[in-house]
Amino acid sequence: MSQPEAQTADAGPPGAGDRPQEIGFLLIPGFALLSFASACEPFRAANDLAGRALYRLRYFGEAEGRVASSSGVEVPTEGLPRERGHLHTLFICAGGEPTGWDRPAIHAALRRMARFGVRIGGISGGPYLMAAAGLLAERAFTLHWEYAGATVEAFPEARLTRARYVADADRLTCGGGVAPLDMAHRLIAERMGAAFARRVSDWFLHTAVGAADDPQRASAAERYGVHHPALLTILETMEKTVEAPLSRQAMARLASVSARHLDRLFLDKRGLRFSAQYRAIRLAHGRRLLRQSPLAIGEIATACGFSSAAHFSRSYRSQFGCSPSADRDLSAQTVDRTG
């Protein structure tokens, strides 16, 4: 694919200034390559379309060298920033498992840059590290939905939302995936105007720019392959009540159907009993916590609505074919090999 044709006619308003806006990306080993590309490529394209350097991109790691992405692609990096210089915004990009994100030097670097007045952003799992650094206290933020459970358990007071991206004063957070394209569109529009930002998005065939508060995931209807209103109400409620499961009768009342009809709906539309579906949702949540948090197995059992660690372990083995401790050990070995 050829580079965008340089055009200067509508490169942006005079107020955009001549100095390139410097944007940094602090990469954690195993960062999601798609999320990273979706975040940095719009700024590169903006430079090409404007025919001048609107943005300067810098890439940082814990040390000077190279940082490998989730797919093994390596990005050359500078060491952690010590001085602000001209740095305007610093995004931290993280993927993989939060068990590999205990990185005090990076937390300290984020706090240092925040004190210097640098706008701090997080992409995919990056906001988790921002929270660990104490930079999201009383701030609304988002991150990839896969990490939501571990984040809430680690930071109970967190003001976590399920938006695609969130701008709260000098903090920017984004769910990752292709959502950084939407966030970059907004940032470019703020500096260069909506028409220019539209040209950048069109270059990436990004014709439907998402709003900040658009959902991260497909609807329950798409995820479960059902369209019955009562069943959708119940499935969505199941996902929200993993810690304190509701009874079959309570769910039936919520959906305005009888308990017997509720049973028929699950068998007909899902091929599962009500209890089996609810248990599967709770166990999937437990598996995420097991792999992404340091919580003890007994604590995870409680967070998933099980009466005891033994009950949770028996159900877990039946669902996934291995014990919770064995699954956690396997996940830790994987992190060690890739971290």
Rank of each mutant, 00 (worst) to 15 (best):
D10A: 07
R19M: 09
P20N: 12
Q21M: 09
L33G: 01
S35H: 04
A37Q: 15
A37F: 07
S38D: 07
A39V: 10
A39L: 13
C40T: 12
E41D: 15
E41Q: 14
F43K: 07
A46Q: 05
N47Y: 02
D48N: 04
D48Y: 02
G51C: 00
G51E: 09
G61P: 12
G61Y: 01
A63D: 11
V67A: 07
V67N: 03
S69F: 00
S69A: 15
S71F: 06
S71M: 11
G72T: 12
G72C: 01
P76L: 03
P76G: 03
G79K: 06
L80I: 12
P81G: 12
R82C: 05
R84H: 10
F91A: 04
I92A: 01
G95F: 00
G96Q: 08
P98D: 10
T99V: 14
T99M: 13
W101L: 13
R103D: 10
H107F: 09
A108C: 06
A109K: 02
A114R: 12
R119C: 13
I120R: 09
I123C: 06
S124V: 13
G125S: 09
P127A: 08
L129I: 14
A132R: 15
G134R: 02
R139G: 14
A140H: 15
T142H: 03
L143R: 01
E146Y: 09
E146L: 05
A148T: 12
V152L: 11
A154Q: 14
E157I: 00
A158D: 02
A158R: 01
L160R: 11
T161C: 10
R162D: 15
R162N: 14
Y165A: 09
V166H: 06
V166K: 06
D168Q: 03
R171D: 11
G175Q: 14
M183E: 12
R191L: 10
A194R: 15
W203G: 07
W203N: 01
W203Y: 13
T207N: 08
A208H: 13
R217M: 11
S219R: 13
R223D: 02
R223I: 01
G225S: 07
H228T: 09
P229V: 01
E236Q: 13
T237G: 06
K240A: 13
S247H: 01
R248N: 00
L254W: 04
S256L: 06
S258D: 14
D268I: 01
D268L: 06
K269N: 08
L272A: 06
A276H: 10
Y278L: 10
L283F: 06
H285R: 15
Q292L: 09
P294L: 06
L295S: 04
I300P: 00
A301M: 05
C304N: 03
C304L: 09
G305C: 05
A309V: 00
A310H: 11
F312G: 02
R317L: 10
S318A: 15
F320E: 03
G321L: 03
C322P: 01
S325T: 08
A326H: 09
L330F: 03
L330I: 12
L330T: 14
Q333S: 15
T334F: 04
V335C: 10
T338I: 08
G339S: 14
